[in-house]
Structure formats: structure tokens, C-alpha cells
């Protein structure tokens, strides 16, 4: 194959695989929005914290797989905590204070991370760091395959749980009609807490699979929040499939523009995507639904 085309294809494939991680982080927005009509604008910060926790655990000799479990446990707790401590209060008063509150908690998380782990980006070593598979000259590294398999696997697992367990059906019921769900004996606030906890776990998990590819540092948080948010705005807040396609699209475009225009331009496509989506959908992603709720 023409070496130039090969290089582009290589970039596109790597970007697409990373895009699946964006889809997973954006999926966390969908989860909490369905249950409680709010999202965590510190979702990228949870990804970063998950990555740091995983990194720290492997640093003290814990195997990678277990470090994932540890990071997810912390993510679960943090997701739950953000909802309980801040979001529930704002929603009870029918205001949008949760937007500001989750941003502030995110900022706090970043400075906490800088204090604990420092400002520099750190590598997150995994046992299969250097392995790769070649398809017709395009090489895909094992950490990239881990991203794709992990992100898709996590989303599929959660979707199955939503449809095939009574817990999942109850969460869907709360999302459709919280009062009617209460009348069925379902505590709607517990269903909301559960969704935030799962969303936090998904974000932390995303950190442990993204980290080995990108390195881990406090600056990854804001970039990931922005990208995941762009993906969620474009795909809407009810279709997981839409997230996967939008995530792949963004990841591909971003990697190609970084390659063609220089690495400083990498973050631009996410921003353009977000601005376009907001311009084409001026009601935003929650505008309508929140007004209906209040």
C-alpha cells in the first residue's frame, strides 16, 4: 500500500479505537441523565482519578486487573458521593445548580490530584504494553485493543443489566415516571444513586484503559469531559449505539487533524463538534426535558 495512505489509515484506526473510550465516558452522562435528569460535568475528572488510583495500585505491586477493580470501587464511591452531596439537593429545589456544583467538585478533584500525584503526566504500565497485532501493515497495540474491548464490553454489559434484570427495569421505570415508580415500591432516589454509582465506576474504568495509551495526568480530565460531552450532545442522551458511532467519528477526526495540522490541533474537532451540535440543536441536550420537569 502507498505509505502515505497507510500512515493515515493507521492514524484513523488508532483514533477510532480511542473514540470508543470517549463513547464510554459519554455513556456515563446517559446513565445519570436517564435516572435523575442531571449529568456530572466532572466526568472527565472521575476518569482521571480512576487512572491515578489504578496507577498507584499497580505501583505498589498489585496486578493490572486488580488495579482496575480498585479504581472502579473508588469511582463507584465518588459517583455516588457527587449525587448525594450536591446534585440531589439542587434537583430537589428544581434548579440547575448541579451544573455549577459538579464543575466545582471537578476542579477540586484536579487540584487534589495535582497535590497528591503532581502535575506531570505519568506512564501507566500494563503487562502487554509493547505487544501489537498487524493487519496488512496497520498495527494495533494491545493497550488499544484493551480500550476497544473494554469500552464496548462495559457498555454492552450495562445495557444487558438494564434490560434483563429487575434492577435495570426499575431504573428505566424511574427514568420514565418517578412518581409511578414510587407507587410500585421503587425508591426513586435509590435508583438515581445507583445510576450515579455505575456511571462513576464506568468513568474510573475508562481511566484504567485510557491511561496505558495516553499517560496519566491532571490535564487529561478537562479534555475528556469536553470530548465526552461533545459526543453526548451529538448522539443525544438516549442511544448508546449513537454514542459508539459518534465516539468513533470524533476519535478518528481528532487523530487525523492532529496528524495533518500538528498536535496542537488535536482538541479542536471536539470543540467544533460541540459548537455545531449546540448551534443545530439550540435547545441543548437537556433544555427541553428540564423545563418539562420544573
Amino acid at each position: 500500500m502507498n505509505p502515505e495512505i497507510l500512515a493515515y489509515t493507521q492514524m484513523a484506526v488508532s483514533g477510532a479505537l480511542m473514540g470508543l473510550a470517549y463513547a464510554l465516558v459519554a455513556y456515563g452522562f446517559q446513565l445519570t441523565f436517564a435516572a435523575g435528569k442531571a449529568v456530572n460535568f466532572g466526568q472527565g475528572e472521575l476518569v482521571m482519578l480512576g487512572a491515578f488510583v489504578g496507577l498507584t495500585l499497580t505501583g505498589i505491586g498489585i496486578p493490572y486487573w486488580l488495579s482496575i477493580a480498585g479504581a472502579m470501587a473508588v469511582g463507584t464511591g465518588l459517583g455516588w458521593f457527587v449525587e448525594r452531596s450536591a446534585v440531589r439537593l439542587a434537583l430537589k429545589q428544581h434548579n440547575e445548580g448541579w451544573i455549577l456544583l459538579t464543575i466545582i467538585i471537578g476542579l477540586f478533584a484536579v487540584s487534589a490530584a495535582e497535590n497528591i500525584w503532581g502535575r506531570e503526566d505519568k506512564p501507566y504500565p500494563v503487562p502487554w504494553q509493547d505487544g501489537s497485532i498487524d493487519f496488512y501493515g496497520i498495527s494495533v497495540t494491545w493497550p488499544e485493543i484493551t480500550i476497544a474491548a473494554g469500552a464496548l464490553g462495559a457498555m454492552i454489559l450495562i445495557e444487558i443489566a438494564k434490560r434483563c434484570t429487575m434492577f435495570g427495569i426499575a431504573v428505566q421505570a424511574v427514568s420514565a415516571d418517578p412518581d409511578a415508580a414510587e407507587l410500585c415500591g421503587i425508591r426513586s432516589t435509590s435508583a438515581t444513586s445507583l445510576s450515579w454509582a455505575v456511571s462513576g465506576a464506568a468513568a474510573a474504568f475508562a481511566g484504567t484503559i485510557i491511561g496505558p495509551v495516553t499517560t496519566v495526568g491532571p490535564t487529561m480530565a478537562a479534555a475528556l469531559t469536553l470530548k465526552a460531552f461533545s459526543v453526548a450532545v451529538v448522539a443525544g442522551l438516549d442511544s448508546a449505539i449513537g454514542l459508539v458511532f459518534t465516539g468513533i467519528f470524533l476519535g478518528t477526526v481528532e487523530n487525523l487533524s492532529g496528524f495533518l495540522l500538528g498536535s496542537g490541533w488535536r482538541e479542536t474537532p471536539g470543540l467544533i463538534l460541540l459548537i455545531l451540535a449546540l448551534a443545530l440543536r439550540p435547545q441543548g441536550i437537556f433544555g427541553k426535558k428540564i423545563i418539562r420537569k420544573v
Binding site: I169, A170, Q172, A176, D177, A180, A181, C184, G185
Partner: peptide
């Protein structure tokens, strides 16, 4: 009723 859910899921939710 829970509009996006199936009839049977609605009934199951009654017995949650």
C-alpha cells in the same frame, strides 16, 4: 404506565 417499557415489564414492576 411506563410508556417506553413493555406491557409485561410494566406488570412485573408492580410486583417489584
Amino acid at each position: 404506565v411506563f410508556a417506553p417499557l413493555s406491557v409485561e415489564e410494566n406488570l412485573l414492576l408492580g410486583a417489584f
